[in-house]
Design a protein around this nucleic acid. Structure first.
Lengths: 235, 235
DNA sequence: ACCTGAACACCGTTCAAGT
DNA sequence: ACCTGAACACCGTTCAAGT
């Protein structure tokens, strides 16, 4: 296989940057200043290039963010898979979750249309594992896709909600103090007895990580529903 | 209780707008031009007032969006509750889901910290119903909160993902055409056999509404896990 | 081939001044 | 009491022109 761009054939002005350099600088910027500060202008300054040069490498800002996530996702290690199909689903889902949880800023891009389709084969291997696990457990391909989609919704929701409640790294000190904590102890205890009883315990309870247990319960429910239904949904 | 502001006592310049008028205009703007076009400047123009006047009624843009959602949520009708606790949870969750699905633009505000705490008693009644249903089924209060949180993650995730894939009302025609549909038929069929087999069927499968079935499976899984565990999680 | 500054069309937010 | 324009400090994106 010949080098795609032989040096002798190259003509015109040489590139000042590359896709890899852009992605690296973007990650550096996010780590240093927080993801809210990732703008094309700042990114160009970080790279020491003109802002508009970035448009040779990314279509627009959304494209930059999606590339950032899919790059990260495609570097995910494949976890060891257990024999049990149900457990394989759990392991793959947790791997997806953990990979995305490392990018809590990903919120905006995570729900972009066609996001899954832009993942590389390495990241899709996790999707494949979940679908294959469901089929191995006795699901039809349609049901297996539903299993994946349901897990995907749950995983995305957990990450988006928790990313904004947990990570206060980049909030002003003042805003943090003013922030009214979620508490139900001043609520009408006649109308909302259980919430009133929980009262100011809610924030403590809500800070616990329940993803793995929730996932297990969900997968159990999905698999038993799928294989119990004698007549799969018509049409 | 005396009227909070007797007319005779009022002094100074009279208000040009009210919170209710602002909310109404914001909803009108979103309905007409799409939620991406909701800006404080446009909203002020819609109302025929100065932009900065809005800052007397909302703290900032996020506050405006949260107020918009909580207003909407607090007008939710209470659904009829069945006798079965499990079914009560389902009915309340679907009510929450449907109320939020009517505001697909809500994404940004839905995951704001302390969002639940800003809901009024009418909207919280649905949360109460879910927690109460779980307790009636045999959960501890802690487990009941976990049940709610898990349902919340799933519901938020479903709405955020589907809001961006389904609703193409406000996309340019061109962007829609260029959009690469999610399809796996050109994937490596050795590495990803199940996805390759599904191929271009994925978009069709993914467009089906699976929330109610997924919810039922999840609730079943959550309730049976909670009441099967002989030893609830320590600490 | 590739890069760029200038310009366009916007944002949210602050604040001193006006009525 | 309440409202406001002007200004600040930014955005993403386009495009004609430069090397």
């Amino acid at each position: 296989m010949p080098p795609p761009r032989p040096a002798r054939t190259r003509t015109g002005r040489p590139p000042v940057t590359s896709r890899a350099q852009i992605m690296e600088a973007a990650r550096r910027l996010i780590d240093r200043d927080g993801w809210e500060k990732l703008t094309l202008r700042r990114l160009a300054t970080e790279l020491g290039i003109g802002t508009t040069t970035l448009y040779h490498h990314v279509r627009d800002k959304e494209d930059l963010m999606v590339q950032l996530i899919t790059d990260h996702a495609d570097r995910m290690p494949h976890p060891e898979l257990p024999d049990n199909p149900r457990e394989r689903i759990i392991v793959a889902a947790i791997a997806i979750h953990d990979a995305l949880a490392a990018l809590p800023w990903a919120a905006e891009a995570l729900t972009v249309d066609g996001f899954l389709g832009r993942l590389g084969d390495t990241a899709l291997w996790h999707v494949e594992t979940i679908v294959a696990g469901a089929v191995a457990h006795g699901c039809t391909p349609e049901q297996a896709v539903d299993v994946f989609r349901n897990i995907w919704y749950y995983t995305v929701g957990e990450i988006l909600v928790r990313a904004r409640t947990a990570n206060h790294r980049h909030l002003d000190r003042e805003k943090l103090l003013n922030q009214q904590k979620l508490r139900f102890d001043n609520r009408d205890s006649t109308q909302l007895p259980h919430l009133a009883a929980i009262g100011n315990q809610w924030p403590t309870l809500a800070s616990r990580d329940i993803y793995p247990q929730g996932l297990r319960a969900f997968v159990d429910g999905l698999l038993s529903h799928a294989t119990t239904d004698t007549a799969p949904l018509s049409r």
